[in-house]
Write a protein that binds this DNA or RNA. Structure first.
Lengths: 334, 334
DNA sequence: CTGAAAGCGCTTACAG
DNA sequence: CTGAAAGCGCTTACAG
C-alpha cells in the first residue's frame, strides 16, 4: 500500500455513480438530495476517509473561516489565557485561529502580519508589540477588520482595552477603605500608556481621599523580579514611614512585592495589603491569594473574537472593559 | 470610495498590459522576466495594495504552508512557551501556525482536530489532553505527519517527550550532594505516566544512595496550590523528622512547596532545598529563584516544529529529550 | 432530484 | 522573454 492520494469529491462521485455536484449537496446537508442517494454517498465518504478541503471550498465560496491572532508575549499568562479565550470562541463559531507571535518585536510583528494576511483571514486580532506605530501596520488593508487589543496604537483602530484608570482608582480606594494610611504605586514604566493610566487612577483616589501629598510612584520592570526589587528598596529606604498599601502595576509586580514583604516578615493581608492588576491565574493560585483587579483574560479573548465579527468599515469600535476588584485578602491593618 | 474589491493577479496583469502568467513569474521572483516588465509589474503591485492569496496558490501548487498545533492547556506557561517556540520556528521557515486549544477535554480536542485537518496542514503537533486514547485520534489520517508531544498516547505515534525518569534522578542526586538526609517526592497524580516516571527516577537515586527505606511519595494536584497544601501537611505531620529535600513533580508544585516552607520560616536554599521540573519562566523570576530540571519549553517547541518536517510514513520518531539541572540555589544544609 | 459547465485566484507546462 | 490554456478541489447557478 503506497501513500494513498487524498480522496476528493470527484472520487466519491465516481465511486457512487453520481456527479460531484450531488456529493457537494450531500456534504452541505442539502435537503434536495434523495435519501437513498445521500445514504450511498455518505457511506462512501466514511469508507474512503474523505477529508473536506476547506481551503478549496472557501476559495470558491469567497469566504474565509480563519481569524488571525497576533500575540506580543505568549509567555505572559495574561496573553496566553487571552489567546485561549479567542480560540474558544472562534472554535464554537466554526472558525479557526491562525496564530502569530511577535515576542514584543515590531519587526517580527510586521513579518508575521505580512504572512498572516496572505491567508485571507476574516479579521485580525492584534495584541501589539511595544512601541508599535501606525506605520508598522501599513500591510493591514483598510477593508480588513482589525481589532487592536490592550495597547492603543496611534491612529483610529478598533480597540478593546481595560479601564486602567478606573481600575487603579478602585484598587487604591479598596486600600483606603481597609484603613491604610500610606499607599504607594509600584511598578511599570511611566512612559507606557497603561502605566500612566493606572498611575492616574491611583492619583485620583489619593486626591479624593485628601492624601494628595502622600502620593508616591515607583518604577520597575513589569515583572515579578521588578516588583520584588522595587519593594525591597522601598522597605529599605522608607524605613521610617513604610507604606502599608501597595497598588501595583500588574499581578507579576504585585507577586514580587508580596515576596519582598514576606522576606521582611511583613504579613500580607494583615500588616500590609497589596492589590495587583490582571488576575492572571497565578494570582488566585498564590498563597496567600492575591487581591487584584480582574477581567478574566479568557473572557476578554472571547469578547475580542466576538467583536471581530461586528467590525464595519464605516465605524470604529472602542470598547473599554471595566475591571472589578477581586478581593482575596479581606483584612487590612489593625 | 466603496469597499474596494481585493485586487488579484489578473487585475495587475491587465493594468500592466501583460498576462497573468507574467505577473505570477514576477511574484515568485523568476529571473526569466525582463527587467523593465518586472519593474512595471512590481510598481503596480505596490500601488494597488495587492495581497497574495496563498490559499489559492497552495491549492494550485498542491502544497501547504500551515502546521496545526493543538495545546491541552494554554494557561499553563510551559505549554504557552512551547507554543511560542513552535510558532517561532515555523515563521522562520515561512510556515504558519494554526492553533487549537483543547483545554484538557478529549471531546473539544476531537472537534478541534476535525476542524484543523480540513485546512490541509502539512503536519500536526499535538500536546494531547489528559486520557487521550488512540480511538480519539482516528481523524488523523495515516499519511498526515503527526507529532505527539509530552504525553504518550497508546499506539505508535511520532513522539517528543522529556526524560522524566533520568531528570528526577538527577534532581534527587543534586539534593543528596548538597547533603540532605531526608528527601521526599512531592506532587502529581501517581497514575499519570510522567509522574510515575519521575517518581521512578527519584526512587532510583534514593536506592543508589542506600536510602531506599526513606523514600516518601506525596500526591497532589500538579499546581502551586497542590504543592502548597501538600507541603504544609508534610511539615505539620512529619514534624519530628521533617524532610529538608523536596523533589517536586513540576515547577508549580515546587513553588507551592517553597511558599509552605516560607510560611514555616524555613529558608529555602538554606535549611531546605527544593527542585522543580520544567523551568517555566516563573521559576527563574521567583525569589529566591527555583532550582529546576530544564529543557526550555521554547526550545522544545522549536524542536517539535523541526521534527514535523522529518516525519516519514515508514518510520516512527521517538525522541526523549534529556533534562538538565538548572541550579539557582547553590547552598544546602549546614 | 441530478448533472454539465463555469469559476474562485493562482501556477505550470507548453508554445512561440 | 511572454502568453493561452488547463487545472488545483470545491460550489453554484442553470437546465432538465
Amino acid at each position: 500500500m503506497g501513500a494513498a492520494l487524498p480522496v476528493k469529491v470527484a472520487d466519491i462521485a465516481k465511486a457512487c455513480g453520481v456527479s460531484p455536484a450531488t456529493v457537494s449537496l450531500v456534504l452541505k446537508g442539502s435537503p434536495l438530495v434523495n435519501a437513498k442517494t445521500r445514504e450511498k454517498v455518505e457511506a462512501e465518504i466514511k469508507r474512503s476517509g474523505y477529508v473536506y478541503n476547506r481551503a478549496a471550498a472557501n476559495l470558491r465560496k469567497q469566504v474565509s473561516t480563519v481569524v488571525a491572532l497576533i500575540i506580543n508575549d505568549l509567555a505572559n499568562p495574561f496573553f496566553a489565557e487571552f489567546a485561549s479565550g479567542v480560540d474558544n470562541y472562534l472554535a464554537q463559531r466554526g472558525f479557526v485561529t491562525l496564530l502569530g507571535h511577535s515576542g514584543e518585536s515590531v519587526e517580527r510583528q510586521a513579518q508575521v502580519l505580512n504572512s498572516l494576511v496572505q491567508h485571507s483571514p476574516v479579521g485580525i486580532i492584534l495584541s501589539p508589540a511595544e512601541h508599535t506605530e501606525a506605520e508598522d501596520l501599513t500591510m493591514l488593508n483598510r477593508n480588513l477588520p482589525v481589532l487592536v487589543f490592550n495597547r492603543e496604537v496611534p491612529g483610529s483602530w478598533n480597540f478593546l482595552g481595560l479601564d486602567n484608570q478606573t481600575g487603579a482608582e478602585k484598587a487604591c480606594q479598596h486600600l483606603l477603605h481597609l484603613g491604610h494610611q500610606q499607599i504607594v504605586f509600584v511598578g511599570g514604566h511611566a512612559d507606557s500608556p497603561s502605566c500612566s493610566q493606572r498611575r492616574a487612577g491611583y492619583a485620583r483616589a489619593m486626591q479624593l481621599a485628601g492624601k494628595k501629598e502622600y502620593q508616591r510612584f515607583f518604577e520597575s520592570a513589569p515583572t515579578k523580579r521588578g516588583g520584588f526589587e522595587c519593594a525591597s528598596q522601598i522597605l529599605e529606604h522608607l524605613a521610617d514611614q513604610t507604606p502599608s498599601g501597595f497598588v501595583c502595576y500588574n499581578d507579576a509586580v504585585a507577586l514580587g512585592v508580596c515576596q519582598a514583604l514576606a522576606n521582611k516578615r511583613i504579613r500580607v493581608g494583615w500588616q500590609a495589603s497589596v492589590v495587583g492588576f490582571d488576575d492572571i491565574q497565578e494570582a488566585g493560585d498564590h498563597f496567600p491569594p492575591l487581591t487584584t483587579m480582574t477581567t478574566s483574560p479568557k473572557a476578554l479573548g472571547e469578547r475580542a473574537a466576538e467583536m471581530i465579527f461586528k467590525i464595519r468599515p464605516d465605524t470604529v469600535l472602542h470598547e473599554i472593559v471595566p475591571v472589578e476588584l477581586m478581593i482575596r485578602q479581606s483584612t487590612g491593618p489593625k
